[in-house]
Design a protein around this nucleic acid. Structure first.
Lengths: 256, 256
DNA sequence: CGACGCTTTGACACAACTCAACAACCGTGG
DNA sequence: CCACGGTTGTTGAGTTGTGTCAAAGCGTCG
């Protein structure tokens, strides 16, 4: 099957089923800087036709040069670095609407790896035209720069979490933050959300061992705070979980 | 004493003594994207006259809106977040040539605090004109964007360090990275460099307790790997220290 | 049905934290 | 110049959080 056919087929399916998904990026940006039809069109022009990639496939590898930047339309992706001793630290997860590998484009050589955690749908970004587009649509440029800054702030939060909270607080915080992120792109159902992260993946995210993650999750479950089972996270007692984690709700609101 | 006089006086002193210092940002950018006289001039135009600020003074506070962005000409600055329980995590240090509070400008409200660790010299940046300047001097824009990306990559490295290395490796890595950063702006003397960081500050950086930092430093000293005394760091056995830390030298080189 | 990846549990080891006390250093003012 | 107070560094003993090893239970997919 030729790629072109695959993607066309995919678009067809999506347009019938859940048209918004294809616009996850536009939707996210629009919620902060209201975009005109023209700007949304321009944004679409910068992206290739969406294509599917399988689970556990690398989109970018650390040290690589001349790779692509992507928009993630559907699926889960992790950004990580590996250490000489084989250890791995996950920097951040990407969810639908996020851009992938942008920083590495500017640096010329990728400073981290990007890999899918589930079957995903991505487009490549024409980064050359992106900079041009900034001139014609400055508000769009501002929106994208804002989104990049927000992603960076997320990494900073993560660093604080790993550096200064114990395993229980840290895990609680992580799931609360994830809930908030997914809510923004409409991927939650009340206090539930899909979460295809294994305990090994969580361990590499939280800077813990997989076995200890298991114990922490058990504690959260036994305290009736939250559960994680079969790819679904359920927050049972949000207030108490927030208190435990020292989680403070971010104030949202449009910029422009 | 009026600020204007103070700054003028300062410029006078600096121009005689060490003219390069005032240009730390230009010097840093130039080492990666060679800048023309015009571009360097434009860069200077975006900055206010330099002014001195005392030790331990806050330039930006988390949650603040409408604050400034700065260029750090001289001195040491830390970027940090505080937790509800009073804990503190230092995200990154800024050294001469670095920009301060740029991300917070884009986000509108500061996501972290910025505070001086030593008597420092800063200029404010006219961020409004900065975006305009990008149009007239695209290479300058690219250089600044590159520098921002590099700072972000530094935070990512730090996250990996805190998440996946033990106290000894982590501390070793930190001092090696610092050496490399300072080398780039000409602030090292061979295997020595000034380092006005107290063990409490180091603790908040490395995600450790101050007392344990002390023990780690002792171990590094007793193994004849490095010492930190009276504001000066000395790397004695760089090879062994790099091996211990799992430190891999970054490849440098101009982009344009 | 078997194999494999993921989860769960227990026992034990060790890294890192806490508390408490003291020593060295530094800037300040007398 | 010295005496002082506060900040920073140093050390010991005991505690706790988290990692390691080993093994068994589940689920799922081929």
């Amino acid at each position: 099957m030729r790629p072109a056919l695959l993607t066309l087929q995919y678009i067809g399916v999506e347009i019938k089923g859940m048209p918004n998904r294809l616009n996850a990026l536009a939707k996210k940006l629009d919620s902060f800087v209201h975009l005109t039809e023209q700007e949304i069109g321009c944004l679409a022009d910068l992206q290739s036709a969406p294509s599917q990639v399988g689970r556990s496939s690398d989109l970018v590898q650390e040290g690589q040069t001349g790779h692509q930047a992507y928009v993630l339309h559907d699926g889960w992706v992790c950004n990580y670095k590996v250490l000489p001793d084989g250890g791995r630290q996950i920097i951040t997860f990407s969810i639908p609407g996020d851009c992938l590998g942008m920083r590495s484009i500017l640096l010329r050589t990728a400073d981290h790896s990007v890999s899918t955690l589930s079957k995903s749908v991505v487009s490549t970004i024409d980064t050359g035209r992106l900079l041009h587009a900034f001139k014609d649509f400055p508000r769009l440029g501002r929106a994208i720069l804002w989104a990049a800054s927000r992603d960076e702030a997320l990494v900073v939060e993560h660093l604080v979490n790993v550096g200064r909270r114990n395993a229980l607080e840290r895990t609680a915080y992580f799931f609360l933050e994830l809930h908030e992120r997914l809510e923004l792109v409409g991927l939650t159902k009340g206090h539930e959300y899909p979460c295809p992260l294994s305990q090994y993946v969580l361990a590499d995210t939280l800077g813990l061992s997989a076995i200890y993650v298991n114990r922490v999750l058990r504690q959260l479950r036994e305290r009736n705070l939250m559960t994680l089972t079969r790819g679904k996270a359920t927050i049972q007692d949000k207030d108490e979980l927030m208190r435990l984690a020292g989680f403070e709700r971010q104030q949202a609101g449009r910029l422009l």
